[in-house]
Structures are given as C-alpha cells and as structure tokens.
Simulated assay, not measured.
Amino acid sequence: MNWHVYMIECEDGSIYTGIAVDVLARFSAHVLGRGAKYTRAHKPVRILWQQEYPDRSSASRIEYRIKGLSAKEKRRLASGLLVESFEDLHRHCLGSSI
C-alpha cells in the first residue's frame, strides 16, 4: 500500500504537513473538523502538494524533514523550486533519489 506526504494550505496562510493513504479523504476529514487538531484551529483551504511513497515508514521520514522546513521553503517545494534540496532530502532519508 502506497502512502503520501501532503501539505495543506490553511486560511491564515499557514501550511500543515501530514501523511495518508488517501489524500483526498484525509483532506475532507480536515475540512470537516475530523482531521488533526491543528486543522481544526486553522481552516484548510487547499491541498498545496503531495508525493507518493512505497510505505508508511518512508512517508513518515520525509514528513518529519518537511515539517522542519520554513513556510517559505515548503512553498518553494510545492512549486518545484526546491528540487535539489528535495532530492538531497530523499537521499538522506531514503538512501535514493526520486
């Protein structure tokens, strides 16, 4: 079963990062107030970015690293401008590039 790392942009401009098997279902849960505590306080607006991984462990490692990025870096990652750093992140966390 494949897992996804995703970023959600919230109404206040903040970015929530999480993992899920079904990103659309998880986003719906966030919107309905049944997701993470963070998204109950920061209304989700849209899925900003998502990337698929072969297992939960890989997704969790990448999620942890992305959560350490600044909001500006997360937006650059979502727009494709942080490609080299993202490939480095993959090598560091997973031992391979994407």
Rank of each mutant, 00 (worst) to 15 (best):
M1Q: 02
M1K: 10
N2S: 14
N2K: 12
W3D: 00
H4C: 12
V5H: 04
Y6S: 04
Y6P: 07
Y6K: 03
Y6E: 01
M7T: 06
I8H: 06
E9M: 12
E9H: 07
E9T: 09
C10P: 06
C10D: 01
C10V: 04
E11K: 08
E11Q: 09
E11M: 02
E11A: 04
D12C: 14
D12V: 14
G13K: 08
G13Q: 04
G13R: 07
S14L: 10
I15F: 08
Y16D: 03
Y16C: 08
T17F: 06
G18Y: 00
G18D: 00
A20Q: 01
A20T: 06
A20R: 05
A20V: 04
D22N: 15
D22M: 01
V23T: 03
V23C: 01
L24N: 13
L24Y: 10
A25C: 08
A25V: 10
R26G: 04
F27T: 00
F27V: 03
F27P: 08
S28D: 12
H30D: 02
V31W: 02
V31A: 10
L32Q: 12
G33V: 13
R34S: 11
R34T: 00
R34H: 09
G35M: 14
Y38L: 13
T39R: 02
R40C: 11
R40W: 02
A41R: 15
A41S: 15
H42L: 05
K43A: 14
K43V: 10
K43T: 14
P44Q: 00
P44F: 01
V45L: 11
V45T: 12
R46F: 02
R46T: 03
R46W: 01
I47P: 07
W49Q: 08
W49N: 04
Q50N: 03
Q50P: 01
E52C: 09
P54T: 05
P54V: 11
P54D: 07
R56N: 04
S57E: 13
S57K: 14
A59D: 04
A59K: 05
R61P: 12
R61G: 09
I62S: 07
E63W: 01
Y64D: 03
R65M: 13
R65L: 15
R65K: 15
I66P: 06
K67W: 05
G68Y: 01
L69S: 02
L69M: 11
S70D: 11
S70F: 09
S70T: 15
S70N: 10
A71E: 11
A71W: 07
K72D: 15
K72E: 15
K72S: 15
R76M: 15
L77Y: 02
A78T: 08
G80W: 06
G80R: 03
G80N: 06
L81V: 09
L82F: 15
L82H: 07
V83N: 07
V83Y: 11
E84G: 02
S85M: 07
S85Q: 12
S85D: 13
S85H: 11
F86R: 12
E87V: 08
E87L: 12
L89C: 07
L89D: 02
L89H: 05
H90C: 14
R91S: 06
C93M: 12
L94E: 04
G95Q: 03
S96L: 10
I98Y: 06
I98T: 04
I98F: 12
